[in-house]
């Protein structure tokens, strides 16, 4: 199978984002795609604050962003056809916190894909990807391939 082009990946990620009510509500959006790596952005919002005295976002919101980013980065892997992939597990190390008022970004990529299992790693960051606030690893199981004809042919979701 031909790997998806950058344009097709962009379309697919935007489409998937639109089908996920929770993160659509939180305005989680595609930030960039670079090769096998995908970056999403979670805008700062008061509802997600963990400690009102500091205004710092709750770590649970970082969990949501990382789960979404690592899960969707399976689509960006050129090594393997996009498939329906339930999450097996996710582990997050919290290295720091994002300053109040700042958007959070998460970058994920598949570092090993076998026929049945995707091993994914990623991190969340705020001001610079060199200063991660959290690191994550997780595994996703490939259940069935997704028919991608509509992604290749669709004219929607290009932005």
């Amino acid at each position: 199978m031909e790997p998806l082009s950058l344009e097709e990946k962009t379309r697919f990620i935007n489409m998937m984002g639109d089908f996920i009510p929770h993160t659509r509500g939180l305005r989680v959006a595609l930030h960039s795609i670079a090769g096998n790596a995908l970056t999403l952005r979670l805008p700062y919002q008061n509802e997600l604050v963990g400690d009102p005295t500091t205004g710092i976002l709750h770590s649970g919101a970082v969990t949501v962003l990382l789960d979404q980013t690592l899960g969707l980065s399976a689509v960006c892997s050129d090594d393997i056809a996009p498939s329906v992939t339930p999450t097996l597990d996710l582990r997050i190390d919290h290295l720091g916190v994002a300053p109040a008022g700042k958007d959070i970004y998460a970058t994920g990529k598949v570092y090993r894909a076998t026929r049945k299992v995707l091993f994914v790693e990623g991190y969340a960051w705020c001001e610079s990807p060199d200063k991660p606030i959290a690191r994550a690893t997780g595994t996703w199981v490939r259940v069935m391939d997704i028919n991608l004809d509509w992604v290749r042919n669709s004219k929607e979701y290009n932005t």
Binding site: T23, S59, V64, D67, Q68
Partner: peptide
């Protein structure tokens, strides 16, 4: 439910 929400 979103898996991240269950985790949070």
């Amino acid at each position: 439910l979103h898996g991240g929400v269950v985790g949070a």
